[in-house]
Write a protein that binds this DNA or RNA. Structure first.
Length: 467
RNA sequence: GGGCGCGUGGUGUAGCCCGGUUAACACGUCUCCCUGUCACGGAGAAGAUCGCCGGUUCAAAUCCGGUCGCGCCCGCCA
């Protein structure tokens, strides 16, 4: 490994120290006998001074030729205080500089297809996506990805400190007919059968409650094969939470406290419009705002305002296009009814559910519910939704069976990570807070995915492409 | 599945309405000059069959039709 200091740590090194510094040439300013390099590593810049007289004529030629933006270099030199008047108050390292004694060109760089050092330049989406690794070098994405790291770290630490257990659930699971389209994975060992990538780990996390873990979380990737939007990608990350022996208020309080903490810790410049977060009923917001994700900011032009809210009392069922009944959220949500008789006799469309959405600045950033833990009641809900008993057994039999072995009352929530960070970063699109997002039509222009596969692969998977 | 918008040197744009010189500007790139710059500066140069195909016309980046690409939105997203 190349021994190298980070730019930042040189701030605290005594003047006169010999140092080795490796990184990228961010900018060069060639004055002839004097060349200045802004050397970049870990998002910080250090001015390196190359004095022509310190190098031989042939070295000078070579250096001038090689030192271009994005060249990877290693500098051996001495930290020096800048003379008064030569200081740059705009950068953290502006009081010092490194006088180069030796310059090693580690790797040259072609001219990037777009400028990396000017955040004001707006580059076309397709060019950015094709060269995502270069776009990620730019300040905007460096900042956003770092913010993402801080948010996820803070979420993890917050929950672990409160006795939550982080548990991974499978990505290769079972397709369920309801909800969004599944991404399917063909099975090699079982001809004609498919795994499905999870739209959410919903059933697994409920089974973890049956397993007695009581407080679970996971920062988990979810997949939905639907058309994208500015705030929707084929794969996205959610903070999946499930708890036993809780009611709605316990979950909402946890989320409220956690998000107040996250904002204070990670983006202290932001301010939250209302604490406690407003709790509004679905009927109320639909009547007042015409949407179930109202933007409650007082000044929508303020980039630092965060207006959180919880939307409660959703209907349990809704009429679908074809006239049949569907679950507004999902069938595992607990209907708010007194007993089984009421569930069976009431007009389903009048039944509310113990279900809540988490809203921020006009975006839905999460949703959850208290689950039905009575297997008979769950069975009844499935029946209202039009599932035959055989169908229920085939699709959800494992869950109903598990519930016969002592299931605690439980509930949870799943805040979306990408959207929350998008709003914190004040970005218009979740692509800006994901390292390697997909295009609007679900492609990866850098890796060129999706792609065709070999005949051999298809054969192993028992698949035939029908033109 | 549908609607709207945009395609002009490497990047970002102007020009298009109202057709007519050598397609303009900024950044970048290249060469030369410069000992204190930090968005360095100065002098010069290269780089575009105006997404593609066709039509109208004496003449098309510009008007018309088609097509491809990209973006946003509606549907969809338990």
């Amino acid at each position: 490994m190349l021994r190298s200091h980070s730019v930042k740590e040189l701030i605290s090194v005594p003047i006169g120290t010999s140092v080795t510094l490796a990184g990228w040439v961010h900018r060069r300013r060639d004055h002839g006998p004097l060349i200045f390099i802004d050397l970049r590593n870990r998002r910080d810049l250090m001015q390196v001074v190359i004095r022509e007289k310190d190098f031989s004529a042939s070295e000078q030629l070579q250096l001038r030729e090689a030192i271009r933006p994005e060249t990877v270099v290693q500098i051996q030199g001495v930290v020096q205080a800048r003379k008064p008047g030569n200081e740059n108050p705009d950068i953290a390292t502006g009081k010092i500089e490194v006088i180069a004694e030796k310059v090693i060109i580690i790797n040259s760089a072609e001219t990037p297809p777009f400028v990396l050092d000017d955040p004001s330049v707006v580059v076309g989406e397709d060019v950015r996506m094709k060269y995502r690794y270069l776009d990620l070098r730019r300040e905007r994405l460096q900042k956003n990805i770092l913010l993402r790291h801080e948010v996820i770290r803070a979420m993890r630490e917050y929950l672990i400190a409160r006795d939550f257990i982080e548990i991974e659930t499978p990505y290769l699971g079972k397709s369920t007919p309801e909800g969004a389209r599944d991404y399917l994975v063909p099975s090699r060992l079982h001809a004609g059968k498919f795994y499905a990538l999870p739209q959410s780990p919903q059933q697994y996390k409920q089974l973890l409650m049956v397993a007695g873990f009581e407080k679970y979380f996971q920062i988990v990737r979810c997949f939905r094969d639907e058309d994208t939007r500015g705030d929707r990608q084929p794969e996205f990350t959610q903070l999946d939470i499930e708890m036993s022996f809780v009611e709605q208020d316990d979950i909402l309080r946890l989320i409220e406290e956690m998000y107040i903490h996250l904002v204070k810790l990670v983006t202290p410049e932001k301010h939250i419009t209302s604490i406690p977060f407003p709790r509004l009923s679905y009927a109320e917001v639909m009547a007042k705002y015409g949407t179930d994700k109202p933007d409650l900011r007082k000044n929508p032009d303020d980039p630092n305002e965060l207006a959180f809210a919880f939307i409660l009392d959703f209907p349990m069922f809704e009429k679908k296009e074809d006239g049949s009944l569907g679950a507004v959220h999902h069938p595992f949500t607990r209907p708010r009814i007194a007993n089984m008789a009421e569930l069976k006799s009431a007009d389903p469309l009048t039944i509310l559910a113990d279900q809540y959405d988490f809203v921020l600045n006009g975006y839905e950033i999460g949703g959850g519910s208290i689950r039905t833990h009575d297997p008979k009641m769950l069975q009844a809900v499935f029946e209202i939704l039009g599932h035959s008993p055989e169908d229920v057994r085939a699709q959800f039999g494992h869950l109903l069976e598990a519930f016969r072995y002592g299931v605690p009352p439980h509930g949870g929530i799943a805040p979306g990570v990408d959207r929350f960070i998008m709003i914190l970063a004040h970005e218009p699109n979740i692509r800006e807070v994901m390292a390697f997002p997909k295009t609007g039509d679900g492609r990866d222009l850098m890796m060129n995915a999706p792609s065709t596969v070999s005949e051999q692969q298809l054969k192993e998977l028992h698949l035939k492409i029908v033109p």
